[in-house]
């Protein structure tokens, strides 16, 4: 283990020791805001439930699988993703100003928010910790291939890397390349190959048969 890993764990432990304190502070704030009528705990329950059970990468995976099988939808998606999704009648309505960017042979897209944690919640749910972390935010804009290597991905030297820094309210979703050997597959089966990370751009879609 490197010195850095030690330091990381140390920081983690230090924050962990504050957990009870943090929990109490959250409870105090929620109690006061509720007593004053600014918020309703029942609403908070619904919001938590929404993000734990309703939205997540499965939504984006269905969008990608549909784009892989329906060329008209794919064209509409690349033109105006929010409109294409909301007018398709196939998905829950989204509010994000969504931009879909397509991986092609020779061009690979990656998404980041260097300033905070902007992420397409409506189609991917909440971001993983690594996406919000300092290592990813600091490095992907300068050393995208180094970051890809840490995800086990090596791209050909000549492949163009296109990084999108989400510095405003536009949100980005990567449309990964459809794996070979999936001709004729139904959308539900295709969607299983579309991982969260492949829609951020830190991995590729899974190959058929890659998982047991």
């Amino acid at each position: 283990m490197s010195d850095h890993d030690h330091e990381h764990e140390h920081d983690h432990d230090r924050d962990h020791s504050h957990l009870c304190d943090v929990q109490l502070r959250v409870r105090a704030l929620e109690t006061i805001l509720t007593e004053k009528g600014y918020i309703d705990p029942a609403v908070l329950d619904q919001i938590v439930e929404h993000f734990e059970t309703k939205v997540g990468p499965h939504v984006g995976a269905r969008v990608v699988a549909h784009a892989w099988t329906d060329t008209k939808f794919k064209a509409a998606l690349l033109e105006d993703a929010t409109r294409a999704i909301n007018e398709s009648g196939l998905f829950d309505q989204i509010g994000d100003h969504l931009v879909v960017v397509e991986n092609r042979p020779g061009e690979h897209n990656m998404v980041v928010c260097t300033l905070c944690s902007c992420y397409p919640w409506d189609v991917l749910g909440l971001p993983p910790v690594w996406y919000k972390s300092a290592p990813y935010r600091s490095r992907v804009v300068m050393d995208p291939r180094g970051v890809l290597a840490e995800f086990g991905v090596t791209l050909p030297e000549e492949t163009k890397i296109r990084v999108w820094d989400s510095t405003a309210e536009t949100r980005f979703l990567v449309l990964p390349q459809r794996p070979a050997g999936t001709e004729g597959w139904p959308e539900e089966r295709l969607a299983e190959l579309v991982t969260r990370d492949s829609m951020i751009g830190t991995r590729l879609a899974e190959q058929p048969g890659a998982r047991p």
Partner: peptide, 26 residues
Amino acid sequence: GKVVAEQDEPVFHADWEGRVLALMRA
């Protein structure tokens, strides 16, 4: 340092995290 991805990461790592997210929205 390196980017470290957590395997099978939960949406929230503790109940209070979900409360904070919901508080922010509300």
